[in-house]
Write a protein that binds this DNA or RNA. Structure first.
Lengths: 217, 217
DNA sequence: TCTAAAAAGGGTGATTTTCCCCTGACAAAC
DNA sequence: GTTTGTCAGGGGAAAATCACCCTTTTTAGA
């Protein structure tokens, strides 16, 4: 879907300065032009519905309020699977990368990418339909490798609920009250998580929860 | 120090994409032009020493590896107090803002600032020598207000050392070993921090440490 | 140099966390 | 119809955490 001989790009990022600056940068690439940008997923879908022309590429920030990158990506996959989405993020947290790619992102760019590399990534993305940097490939392969031997840690709803409460200054007894369970049951959850997550103290619970986005400081 | 009738700007940011994009944006402002950009404080000083022309404005990112915004700012204040430095950051963490301003930054911009506002900020910065957004003013005033009644929480080096270790799965006894102190002394640190930080459990220590950047997950 | 405060360490006891082993209810699977 | 698995709960004990009150040594300021 080329218009004026150049690919159309939409930017989704809540950092207006970055979004605007990025738009200017993209517009310096002769094969690309920016259609518009949105502050979050919600705004993106409003724009997509309003405009006739669908973008060829969406540059999607992950950390946004309102409707974050993961949710947005999942919706995009459902409604517009033909759009090539490149995730844009500050951090290279493995779980985040995996989540984005599993949700249908066709690439994952760190914001400290070199502008030249960025242009290459964009070009490759529209031509081949995807772009994976060596670093991301390594990360993903590493994760798959580990997933093979350690059968993936999936937490149940009640465990997650407990995990979040463990990140507060409540005692387990208080947590038990909050969850309408006996302290002994809570003790069971604690022990289960200690085993599942290979940790051995409440501090471990807190660190795991924060690292895996179950709890925000 | 105007050259070609326009103010010179230097960008310091480890996110190359952002830096490049920002440079392009600034270059669209007719009263400004970018001299160069640096990936961190170290690189900035190398450039400053190499080049004859000093910039009028430095846009300084805070979160950088090698030499971060705070350290860079302190050096800049010593060596080139005449340069107007605007801190650029993702987050509006009060303690960070305070630290930057105390180190001599003449303004503090959040990266989600609107590009138009950004241009205004830049213009005001070179004309008046500083730029404080309403939000930053409020934050700073709020902090001063609190500083009046609660005499500011400054942690000593040894307390910080302990705090970081408390963010691991070590027991206090092990921490004592690491710090070559008796468990009883460690217990003293624990108690002091509990009071200083208004917390009541080790979880509180971990949360405080992470929130105030003493510990990275 | 004197003094006062900060740092290091001690004792004791209550509370919480951590560990291990065990019971019953219930639901899906075989 | 039994097995298997998950969820809830219990007993008991060791270890760690937390709280309060105390002494000695070191350090820094007047």
């Amino acid at each position: 879907m080329i218009k004026d001989n150049s690919y159309s790009v939409v930017i989704v990022d809540d950092h207006l300065l970055f979004a605007q600056a990025l738009e200017n940068l993209v517009n310096t690439f002769k094969d690309f032009h920016v259609l518009y940008h949105a502050k979050n997923g919600k705004e993106l879908f409003e724009q997509l519905n309003k405009n006739d022309q669908l973008p060829d590429v969406v540059l999607l920030d992950i950390n946004m309020p309102i409707m974050n990158g993961i949710e947005t990506m999942q919706e995009l996959s459902k409604n517009h699977p033909e759009i090539v989405v490149l995730a844009l993020s500050m951090d290279d947290e493995e779980s985040t990368i995996i989540k984005m790619l599993r949700s249908g992102a066709k690439g994952y760019l760190l914001k400290d990418i070199h502008p030249t590399t960025f242009k290459d990534a964009l070009t490759e993305a529209v031509q081949k339909g995807f772009y994976y940097s060596d670093q991301i490939t390594t990360t993903v392969l590493g994760s798959l490798h580990r997933a093979n031997k350690t059968p993936e840690v999936t937490l149940k709803d009640r465990e997650i609920e407990f995990l979040k409460l463990a990140c507060t200054e409540k005692t387990y007894k208080e947590i038990a009250g909050d969850m309408f369970l006996s302290p002994k049951t809570i003790d069971g959850y604690r022990e289960t998580l200690f085993e599942k997550l290979h940790i051995k103290s409440r501090v471990g619970l807190v660190l795991y929860a924060i690292k895996h986005n179950y709890f925000k400081v």
